[in-house]
């Protein structure tokens, strides 16, 4: 008996084929994630020369500088802003996502479209629109003045509240979409089962719906939290650049102070922070939810 040619043997070397198919992805990751991260790390060990160019070397001085209370405080404040933004996005976005996922298919498509419509215009244009709304002689104050003149003008623009508003507005869709996906996957029979077993409408949510949509929440929270920590444009435009967040400081190191090594060290620290938070999220993810 002759053995069939190896190429026709199904699944003879699935590993090789899989690797071949993965090559573009791996190349992309290597080229645009791993290499830049290594460059960043290498740069963070260097030094700034008099003219602001990078002198490659090996020094931990930039990391020592990170421990300066100024930067620690900025880190903490950035995390606080991001946490607040994320919490508000969750509070507003979850019910929206839930309702969209439970709506009739035609309505659902329309609502999803509406969630994504803002992406059709530039992020900066939308932020400027918020400036027009929040400024002293803006739309919101005109409305307030009309409703109750004594309250006007509310000094909203160039405040932390304006920054958080802008951030929540910008990142809300990034929370809605993954939560929507996980609610949509949720088997309606599970909710009925919970009702059947005596859970009223208010108890079904924490006991069944919340734990089962946790993967969507985790994805959404990550998608909102990570970019907001490092965001600088919104802070500049809506916050009047008064209170620097870590994104502003990093941007400054690259464009104003021209201290790339220190900027790189800040970036590496931020990267480390995200890695830790991802590991924590993974560890906290309850057993059994991974496979529905």
């Amino acid at each position: 008996m002759t053995s069939p040619p190896a190429a026709l043997e199904p699944g003879a070397r699935p590993g090789a084929v899989a690797w071949l198919l993965l090559t573009p992805l791996l190349a992309w990751l290597a080229l645009f994630v791993v290499v830049p991260a290594l460059l960043l790390f290498g740069c963070s060990l260097g030094e700034r020369d008099e003219f602001g160019q990078v002198l490659w070397g090996f020094s931990l001085e930039n990391y020592a500088r990170l421990l300066d209370p100024v930067y620690l405080r900025i880190f903490l404040r950035s995390l606080g802003f991001a946490a607040l933004t994320t919490a508000l996005c969750l509070l507003i976005g979850y019910p929206v996502a839930y309702q969209i996922a439970r709506a009739a298919p035609r309505v659902r498509e329309l609502l999803l479209l509406l969630v994504m419509v803002p992406f059709w215009t530039s992020f900066l244009v939308r932020t400027y629109a918020w400036m027009a709304i929040l400024r002293e002689e803006g739309l919101l104050n005109a409305l307030v003045a009309w409703l109750h003149p004594a309250w006007a003008p509310l000094g909203l623009l160039y405040t932390p509240a304006a920054v958080v508003t802008g951030l929540v507005y910008s990142y809300l869709p990034f929370l809605i979409l993954p939560v929507y996906a996980s609610v949509e996957k949720l088997d309606g029979a599970l909710i009925e089962a919970a009702h059947d077993l005596g859970a009223g409408p208010w108890r079904v949510f924490p006991s069944v719906i919340l734990p089962l949509t946790l993967p969507g929440i985790a994805a959404g929270v990550t998608l909102v939290f990570v970019p907001t920590v490092a965001m600088f444009a919104v802070t500049d435009l809506l916050g009047g650049a008064r209170v620097p967040l870590i994104g502003n400081v990093i941007q400054n190191q690259f464009l104003q102070a021209r201290d790339w090594p220190f900027g790189a060290a800040l970036g590496v620290a931020l990267l480390g922070l995200f890695l830790i938070s991802q590991l924590l999220l993974r560890a906290l993810r309850p057993h059994g939810v991974i496979r529905g």
Binding site: L190, P211, L212, H287, G292
Partner: peptide, 10 residues
């Protein structure tokens, strides 16, 4: 339930 509808997280 048909398909049992067991809570996967419990």
């Amino acid at each position: 339930f048909q398909g049992y509808a067991l809570f996967p997280h419990l």
